[in-house]
Design a binder for these strands. Sequence first.
RNA 1: GGCGCGAUGGCAGAGUGGUUAUGCAGCGGCCUGCAAAGCCGUCUACGUCGGUUCGAUUCCGGCUCGCGCCUCCA
Length: 457
Amino acid sequence: MLKLYNSLARELQDFRPIEPGRVRMYVCGMTVYDYCHLGHARVMVVFDMVTRWLRASGYQVTYVRNITDIDDKIIKRAGENGESIRALTDRFIAFMHEDAAALGVLKPDAEPRATEYVPQMLGMIGDLEKNGYAYVAANRDVCYSVRKFAGYGKLSGKSLEDLRAGERVDVAAGKQDPLDFVLWKGAKEAEPDEAKWPSPWGTGRPGWHIECSAMSSQLLGRHFDIHGGGQDLQFPHHENEIAQSEGAHGSTFVNYWMHNGFVRVDDEKMSKSLGNFFTIREVLKQYDAEVVRFFILRAHYRSPLNYSDAHLDDAKHALTRLYTALKGFDGEAPVDWNEAHAQRFRAAMDNDFGTPEAVAVLFDLASEVNRTGDAQLAAQLKALGGVLGLLQRPAVEFLQAAPASGLANEAIDAMIVARAAAKKAKHFAEADRIRDELKAAGIVLEDGPGGTTWRRA
RNA sequence: GGCGCGAUGGCAGAGUGGUUAUGCAGCGGCCUGCAAAGCCGUCUACGUCGGUUCGAUUCCGGCUCGCGCCUCCA
């Protein structure tokens, strides 16, 4: 039985889908006006892992991850670049897909773009108005009246009073309550036509939160199983989603809320506003994408994850150990779930997606493979790694994966041949010289019974 | 100020009321021409003060420190 930590209840709960055998999950994706950074990588990898584990557990999963392609920052950036909003967002969606693919993230079942669901959002705002939750503010924005929604604060654990006490934002013109948020933003003269849609409340564009309420109910139904995203979305974004969806539909929105922890740099949250972020493609110039995925999965999804070169190097060495164990085995087989390691793996994953422990099982399995040379266990190792989206390449390909600049394979092979000749002639000084030369170039030699193999350090 | 999370060995990072996490790094040994890889063995732990208990790193409370949210942010 899968247990997961439900942010809404703030406790570990047994997972029971609404419909037996079927899971419907929605995750808040990216706002596409810039490259994805490591924080985005974490969300993508974490919920990819969740999807894979649910599927491995026999569920039929429908996974939706949205794309926010209209908001203040997008309008601003497109203006700065002198390009259309569509051109800007299309470009960064393509980059996002490249990054996701590199990290072994499978495509969600649907990736709705906000701009394609404006009619559904308007319908929902209409329902909210009808139900008494929405009002038109003095500045023509349509706002949500949080005090009308009895459950406001249930996800973030905040009360309206607490929130008001810490108020540090200027109250937008015309809001009845500082915490009210915008459902529909009235159009500004200076904004491009591309950012304007007609509506019963005048020309404008959607507020940020309404898209997720509209798209999730459209694609998954009004009531679905899991809603995920980064911890920073818990408040106000997800709190507002609940207020909108439950206010409009009058029924429960989501059963389980999952929030992944932040990626940090020097013990501080990596974020756009702090400017301390590394883009995925920046990191991938230096590290193999699978190392980055492994680095993310080696920590529990709710824990903070500190980024540094030293930690990535550590992850690389660790992953190298797993691939080294797999070297020389090319058999593949589906996971044998009756086998002892697989059972431990399952127990770890069923405990709130305990990937750190699941990865530890992989290492135990690797030791066993090294000790016994058992091909079946090697296949099991590869298959279990596959459940996490790891270890699927031929071992030699990973071990010899070439960095941007480095010695060509042919040159390495030639030097190994020369060294073998020197060794045969007992010219060990010459053999060692060649080995040292390769080592200086980042190539490590390993002499085995079947000859010499190499890998990149 | 309000709300919440966390503090584990040199580093990273799990977990558990009493028995080895795991990886990297270190040390000793085996293997090797010497190495590397691998194998065997091994050293560094559970912030602090109290409480509960036969027994607490694990449960409860105080304290200290760190982090997050309360503003766009995955």
